[in-house]
Structures are given as structure tokens and as C-alpha cells.
């Protein structure tokens, strides 16, 4: 992007974006998009991704400013650096979009997801599921004699790891919110 002749390397966490433009390495990026909360805005953003063949790995949306009627859409997407850059530019030029932040490029950020995980288990497996839940700091929010519903928040990886441990203990059903993310610091 710069006319300066800086040699291009591969560092997604540098203060400068020095990644090769034409690299074909697929990267996963988290985008935080502040939009006007108006009818159809989510369809518009999703339509951009489907229409231009970009990936959506996770998506969350909710109004974050009730007086200003702004919503934050958090999208986890994947693509080559050129595609990720293009996604950001295409989002930024949409009329109802106020701000697009590529959290992955801009620095350290916090990503969290909430999941409800129902585990059907009896006997020793049922006890074991409670023990693992304690380790993962998951809360029990519903219980029958044959099932628990655990509530947990964490990175998507943590939720995956929890669900993987639960599966040998019994049938697992899951509802996830998708990632919400925010840059660290000021």
C-alpha cells in the first residue's frame, strides 16, 4: 500500500502491514464492522460476502448503541491478504457502514464466544461431565436426570475443546453465538 520501498515480509501483528500483497497463504481475520442499524443492513453485508465469494466462518450482530442506532457486526473470515484487504475496502464503501476494523491486523484483541452445550449422560459419565465443566469454568444452567446444559464463554478453540471432551461421555448438542471481538487497550 505504500510507495516506500519497504521489503515485504509476513507479519500480521506488525505496526506496518508488510505482508506480501500477492501471497496465496490463507489467513483468518476478525473484522469488527460498525453499521447503521436499519432494515436490510445485515442482508447487505452478507450479500457482499456471498456475491463476491468471500468466506464467513462466524458472524454475530446486535445493536450496541441504542440512541445512535448503531450495530456491531463481528465477522470472522478467511482469505489471502489481497482478498482480506478487498473485503475491508468493499465493506467500507457500503453506505450504511460507518467503520471497519480488521482486529487481526490492528493488534492484540479479545475474542469471545458464548455457547450452550447440552450433554446427555448417565452414571459416571454424568459426574465426569460436571468435573470437566468445572475445569473449563462452564456453568450449569439447566439439569434433568439425564442431561445438563452448560453455559460457557471463551475463545472458539476453548469451546471446541470442551465439546470434544464431552462427546465420549454422551450425545452433545450445541448452540453458539459466534465470535464477538474487541481491540485491547485504548
Amino acid at each position: 500500500m505504500s510507495p516506500l520501498n519497504i521489503e515485504q515480509g509476513s507479519s500480521s501483528h506488525s505496526a506496518y502491514d508488510l505482508r506480501s500483497h500477492m501471497s496465496d497463504v490463507v489467513e483468518v481475520h476478525t473484522l469488527a464492522i460498525l453499521v447503521e442499524n436499519e432494515p436490510g443492513v445485515l442482508a447487505r453485508v452478507i450479500g457482499l460476502f456471498s456475491g463476491r465469494g468471500y468466506n464467513i466462518e462466524s458472524l454475530t450482530v446486535a445493536e450496541v448503541d441504542h440512541t445512535g442506532r448503531r450495530s456491531r457486526i463481528t465477522i470472522v473470515t478467511s482469505g489471502t491478504p489481497q482478498v482480506i484487504h478487498q473485503i475491508k475496502m468493499q465493506l467500507e464503501r457500503m453506505v450504511p457502514v460507518h467503520e471497519v476494523a480488521d482486529l487481526t491486523v490492528e493488534g492484540p484483541h479479545v475474542s469471545r464466544e458464548l455457547a450452550l452445550i447440552k450433554v446427555f449422560a448417565k452414571g459416571e459419565s454424568r459426574v465426569e461431565s460436571l468435573r470437566i465443566a468445572e475445569i473449563f469454568r462452564a456453568n450449569v444452567v439447566d439439569s434433568t436426570l439425564e442431561s445438563f446444559i452448560f453455559e460457557m464463554t471463551g475463545t472458539p478453540e476453548k469451546i471446541d475443546a470442551f465439546a470434544d471432551l464431552m462427546r465420549p461421555l454422551g450425545e452433545v448438542r450445541m448452540a453458539r453465538t459466534g465470535v464477538a471481538a474487541m481491540a485491547r487497550g485504548l
Partner: peptide, 15 residues
């Protein structure tokens, strides 16, 4: 005038 046109297809040395 459209930032998304720049670097879409061809890398620009002077964007």
C-alpha cells in the same frame, strides 16, 4: 475515488 478499486486486481505502487 473508490478505495476498493485500488489493489483489487493489480497492485498499485502509487495508490
Amino acid at each position: 475515488i473508490d478505495p476498493s478499486s485500488i489493489n483489487k486486481v493489480i497492485h498499485a505502487d502509487f495508490p
